Amino acid sequence: MITVIWDTWLKPGAEEEGLRLTRQVWSDMKSFDGYISHQIFIDQDASGHIIALAKWQSRANADAVREKYQNAETIRQLTPLLARPRDRWMTYEDQVS
């Protein structure tokens, strides 16, 4: 299992619509193979800053869905609201206690 971290910064004034579209993206992800779960975090000090943590069965699943979904209507609507391109990190949990 992997966790993909998406870091999103929205333009001032686009926070409400950007959050709505971000929620739609992650709702859509539920229908893709390999999706496990997600959480969305909104920065209390910068309302236009959203971090999404998504768990996938494998990097291959996450990459395949990114490729398929990158031209989806929801992404086309979200992109103009971005203050900068979204960052994505592929991570795995450290199992050492």
Rank of each mutant, 00 (worst) to 15 (best):
M1Y: 06
M1Q: 08
T3Y: 12
V4Y: 00
V4M: 13
D7Y: 10
T8C: 07
W9M: 07
L10A: 07
L10S: 06
K11L: 13
P12Q: 11
P12C: 08
G13P: 06
A14D: 11
A14W: 09
E15P: 03
E17C: 02
E17M: 05
E17H: 04
L19A: 09
L19D: 05
R20P: 00
R20I: 08
R20S: 14
R20F: 10
L21I: 04
L21F: 05
L21S: 07
T22I: 03
T22Y: 00
T22M: 06
T22C: 06
R23L: 12
R23K: 15
V25C: 08
W26E: 02
S27C: 06
K30A: 12
K30I: 02
S31N: 06
S31H: 06
S31W: 01
F32L: 09
F32V: 05
D33S: 12
D33M: 00
D33K: 10
G34T: 09
G34A: 07
I36G: 05
I36T: 11
I36C: 06
I36W: 04
S37L: 06
H38W: 01
Q39S: 14
Q39K: 11
I40F: 03
F41D: 12
I42S: 11
Q44Y: 09
D45G: 15
D45L: 12
D45H: 15
D45W: 08
A46C: 11
S47K: 15
S47W: 00
S47T: 10
G48N: 07
H49K: 07
H49Y: 03
H49D: 01
H49V: 00
H49I: 00
I50Y: 04
I50F: 02
I51K: 01
A52N: 13
A52F: 00
L53C: 13
A54H: 06
K55G: 03
S58G: 09
S58W: 07
S58D: 10
S58A: 11
R59Y: 08
N61S: 13
D63W: 01
D63C: 09
A64W: 02
R66F: 10
R66C: 05
R66S: 12
E67K: 14
E67H: 13
E67C: 03
K68L: 02
Y69K: 03
Y69T: 07
Y69E: 08
Y69D: 08
Q70S: 14
Q70K: 15
N71A: 11
N71G: 04
A72E: 07
A72L: 04
E73F: 02
T74W: 11
T74I: 12
I75M: 10
I75P: 01
R76N: 14
Q77P: 04
Q77S: 12
Q77V: 06
Q77E: 14
T79A: 12
P80H: 10
P80T: 10
L81Q: 01
L82W: 03
L82Q: 02
A83R: 01
R84Y: 01
R84W: 02
P85D: 13
P85Y: 13
D87C: 03
D87P: 00
D87Q: 11
D87R: 05
R88E: 00
R88L: 00
W89C: 02
W89V: 08
M90Q: 10
M90S: 09
E93N: 12
E93Y: 06
D94Y: 13
Q95N: 13
Q95K: 15
V96A: 13
V96N: 12
V96Q: 15
S97R: 04
S97T: 09
S97E: 10
S97I: 11
